[in-house]
Amino acid sequence: MLVRDLERALFDRFPAQDAESWDHVGLSVGDPEAAVTGVAVALDATERNVRAAADRGANVLLTHHPVYIKAPDAFTPADAMRPSSSAAIYTAARLGVSILSFHTNLDRSHEVRELLPSLVGMQAASSLEYPGDPTARGLGSICTCAPRTLGELAAACAGAFGGAPRVWGDPDVAVERVAFLGGSLGSFGEDAMRWDAQAIVCGEGGYHVCQDLAIRGCGVILLGHDRSEDPFAAILMNAAISAGVDDAVLHRIGLPHQWWTVSTKEQERS
């Protein structure tokens, strides 16, 4: 299998036309005619992960997040005055690692829609982007569930995704209609409100957006952008195997500890 064959197979599964117009998906650096000797799967296309892929004998780094949205103006070794993508691309080219990324086109897949709610025992009815059409590929998920409190839902999310989510809303309020969205909430809180969601689980959201949603009766559970999307690596691994990559040369690169929180009794309900 060549790099271009793997890219084509993954685009068949996650069509490029499903990506946002601003997004950068597919091959960003590497030789499309190179034979695939190994594939490492990670959330991010960082220099650290490029080196980790090479250390494992993989000449393809398959990621959810692209190495860049807008290409940097130069590709150089790590330099505090340049974006980190400069060093990631420089190192990938030097080590012969091709970077393939499937971002918002993967976000719109049925596989992502179903995966996030399934981690807390829920089943997606349709996407948050197209709630009236269960067959359409779209961002996010909407679910109905047996009544549980927002606090119970948040605890289930903490267990499933790890970490300590930040939660907006009354922990004792009952929720039965829940929306899920990997990554940034953006304007999708309004879609959740139109669907009468009582809670939305996502990666991150702006202060005023979350405050407004909570006041209007929709709790918000913020998992952390990376924690909300790290499960997508399993989808990419399965897709690579389906494309013909031998699982003996398929490697998973886990999340680094790139941020942390401080918690005290006084800070738990700020």
Rank of each mutant, 00 (worst) to 15 (best):
P147S: 13
G140W: 00
G151A: 13
M122A: 13
G138K: 02
T135L: 10
F161Y: 09
G162L: 14
S141F: 03
M122R: 09
L128K: 10
R137N: 15
C145K: 03
E129C: 11
A160W: 04
G159W: 12
P147H: 12
A154Y: 02
E152N: 06
T149A: 06
S126Q: 03
T135E: 13
A125H: 11
S141M: 08
L139K: 02
G159I: 07
P147E: 11
A158W: 01
P134F: 14
S127F: 05
T135N: 10
A164H: 07
D133C: 01
A136N: 12
P147V: 07
A125W: 02
E152P: 07
G132D: 15
G138E: 04
G151N: 12
P147M: 10
S141P: 06
T135F: 12
S141I: 03
P147L: 10
A124Y: 02
L128Y: 01
L139S: 05
L128E: 02
M122Q: 14
A156C: 07
D133N: 14
R148K: 15
T149S: 15
P131G: 12
L150W: 01
T135W: 04
L128W: 00
T149F: 05
G121I: 07
L128P: 00
E129Q: 15
Y130E: 14
A156F: 00
A155Y: 07
A156Y: 04
G140D: 06
S141N: 01
G162Y: 05
A164W: 05
G162I: 10
C143H: 04
A156S: 13
C143A: 10
G163V: 09
M122F: 13
A146M: 13
L150S: 00
P147K: 03
